[in-house]
Design a protein around this nucleic acid. Structure first.
Lengths: 188, 188
DNA sequence: CCATTTTTTTACCAAATGGTAAATGCTTTC
DNA sequence: GAAAGCATTTACCATTTGGTAAAAAAATGG
């Protein structure tokens, strides 16, 4: 819980009683590698905070291929927030790509906090903006060759290289995992 | 002006007097192919409506290469709205890729309308959402080969193929224009 | 600790793409 | 309508990447 409180207090002040209110509206939870936080075709019902682990966002393209769009790691909110807010059906999956420890805000509690905690909305909006910004972060540059895309990935996400299965990184970079493996060999 | 009025009235009702107020706060304008609507490094000061023509959004990548991120064509708003609203410096260029006829809302007038026209904010928010959605629309899929990316581009933007210089489409698709030219030959 | 499963690496060949250079075609302008 | 400036196509070859199959390495579960 400490991690979540520290995270929240980055965005605004809360007194002890308010912090307790927040804590009373969350649930600790976990996901094993491969399990889903939310799924395409369903209406998302929760906002999560990643205490430990990495979650990826992906969708199925026409041909059925999985396209990885982003990675989200610890000390971040995770949610398909637009559809969470609008009660609409999600178009993408959010899946644990390592085992994850999470703190969950169920939808009712998330809304309750807006009523119960003065200043919560201000904090909330800032957190959500950061959350959406991370998901929209520029992906790999399509005109660059795979080697360059991998190099830039290492610069932008150095902490992921040794934690996330190669197949997901390959999917994010738009290459087969065989090609990515070859690229890694040739880089050294 | 008719085009703009029709566009606006899609999103809400306005009476004749209110329409006049809107018209009094815009300026007709035009851009030649190659000229910029707004530029990276500057604070955007206007919202535009494209009466005729196509504008592209692009930015410079590390290595100096131009990356085309989106195309916007007639009957759409065009703006770097986040930075327009926040008075912050833009990170991308918006450039006419054909000659364009535009209707411009200078920033002061745009804000004036919120005060002068009841219901304007409601209409405005809907228009801006659509504008931002169009810019965020999913780009070409990085894992597909260039031929497939071009095929899907033709499906998604059939009206652009014969209007926009090939070099810009190539930049959007992440291939050299020579490769794109060859792809076009082989497709027929 | 061994068996099983998952993940990563290798290898080989075919196909796609980039780099470079040049030719052709198309517009614009005077 | 000729000249100049853009835009598009072609060609050739080197390099990169994908497809397929299999081996090796690492992680997982009894």
């Amino acid at each position: 819980m400490k991690e979540l409180i520290n995270y929240i207090l980055q965005f605004g002040q809360l007194d002890k009683q308010q912090i307790d209110l927040v804590m009373n509206n969350v649930v600790e939870s976990s996901l094993h590698k491969g399990e889903h936080f939310s799924e395409a075709g369903k209406v998302p019902k929760q906002v999560g905070f990643i205490v430990d682990g990495v979650i990826r966002g992906y969708y199925h393209h026409n041909n059925g291929e999985e396209i990885t769009r982003c990675f989200i790691s610890e000390n971040s909110l995770v949610a398909d927030y637009v559809n969470f807010e609008a009660n609409t059906v999600s178009a993408e999956y959010l899946q644990a790509c390592t085992d994850c420890r999470l703190i969950i805000f169920p939808k009712d509690n998330w809304e309750e906090l807006s009523r119960a905690v003065a200043g919560w909305d201000n904090i909330k909006n800032k957190m959500v903006q950061i959350c959406m910004y991370q998901k929209s972060r520029k992906g790999p540059v399509i005109s660059q060759d795979a080697t360059t895309r991998y190099r830039e990935f290492m610069e932008n996400y150095p902490s992921l290289i040794n934690r996330v299965p190669l197949a997901y990184i390959a999917s994010y970079l738009g290459v087969t995992q065989q090609s990515l493996s070859r690229i890694r060999r040739n880089i050294r």
